[in-house]
């Protein structure tokens, strides 16, 4: 099987996947650097499947649409990338499938966004609809802070920062959970622990093993299915009322989670590819 490896910069996660692909005698890698690609809407790439590992959301999403348009299967699919890459679409998809999530509000002006924050109560979290690694998240603890952040976003941000995504702040007692879903299985999970309210490992959160209980596997698989399925990392909060799904990531980073979970995540991803070809 010829696997198109869609990438830009190649990080340790991608190196681990490349090493796993090279171990397989029945797989051949075709590197597809998104910085060099030119699409013509007609030409099918000489591959059986594209494995998406681009660091840029906008390039990944459009490339997946164009590959699928000429009949090339992709992991993950374009629709999955579109839903996961936009927190508003993620929230709507989770809601469509009855997957529990924190209360959210979406508003289109600073004034209506402020009303939404006041309705949710303080503290609340303002997130850019498109973004990752915990960047530009704002926990607003009072009205003064909310007014300031909203004004800055409206004036200093590009146009998509004027689409306001407000999320109820969930007290997570220093940790949250990331669950790794590959196909129809939740293969591993980690706790991400930090003294900071942002627990992303990209921001210094520490990874440790989290047992994959039936409840955790169940909600993680439901969240993944809500996005369209595939290879996904589901971020969850633990609350007294059960798990809440915070985000779902479609170009998941796993390099810090292999040793602590004992699960060879890149091996699981590469094994899944054959099942993903129609």
């Amino acid at each position: 099987m010829r696997v198109g490896f869609l990438h830009s910069l190649i990080r340790r996660d991608e190196k681990l996947l490349i090493a796993e692909l090279r171990r397989r005698r029945d797989m051949e890698i075709v590197f597809l650097d998104d910085r060099r690609l030119v699409f013509d809407l007609e030409t099918r790439p000489p591959v059986d499947l594209v494995l998406e590992r681009s660091i840029n959301h906008s390039r990944a999403m459009h490339a997946l649409r164009l590959f699928e348009g000429v009949g090339t299967a992709c992991v993950n699919a374009y629709e999955v990338a579109r839903r996961c890459g936009d927190k508003i679409l993620t929230a709507a998809s989770l809601r469509d499938h009855g997957v529990p999530q924190p209360e959210v509000r979406i508003a289109f002006t600073p004034e209506s966004a402020l009303a939404a924050v006041e309705e949710l109560g303080y503290p609340a979290v303002l997130k850019p609809a498109v973004g990752s690694w915990g960047r530009l998240l704002s926990r607003v603890n009072d009205r003064d802070a909310a007014e300031t952040v909203l004004e800055h976003k409206a004036i200093l941000g590009s146009y998509h920062h004027s689409i306001f995504f407000v999320q109820q702040y969930v007290e997570k007692r220093g940790r949250d959970i990331r669950a790794f879903v590959v196909g129809d299985e939740c293969v591993a999970a980690i706790y991400r622990t930090s003294d900071h309210w942002i627990t992303n490992t990209a921001r210094g959160g520490r990874a440790s093993n989290c047992p994959v209980t039936p409840d955790l596997a169940g909600i993680s698989l439901r969240a993944a299915q809500a996005m369209g399925g595939g290879v996904l990392a589901v971020d969850l909060f633990e609350t007294g009322g059960g798990f809440l799904v915070n985000e779902v990531n479609y170009t998941m980073e796993f390099r810090n989670s292999i040793d602590v979970t004992g699960v060879n995540i890149p091996e699981r991803i590469v094994s899944y590819l054959r099942r993903a070809v129609p």
Binding site: N56, H57, G85, V130, G131, S132, W133, A233, Y250
Partner: peptide, 11 residues
């Protein structure tokens, strides 16, 4: 030199 991180970089 590697390119600087862009706004839509991530997972």
């Amino acid at each position: 030199e590697a390119p600087d991180a862009e706004e839509d970089w991530g997972e």
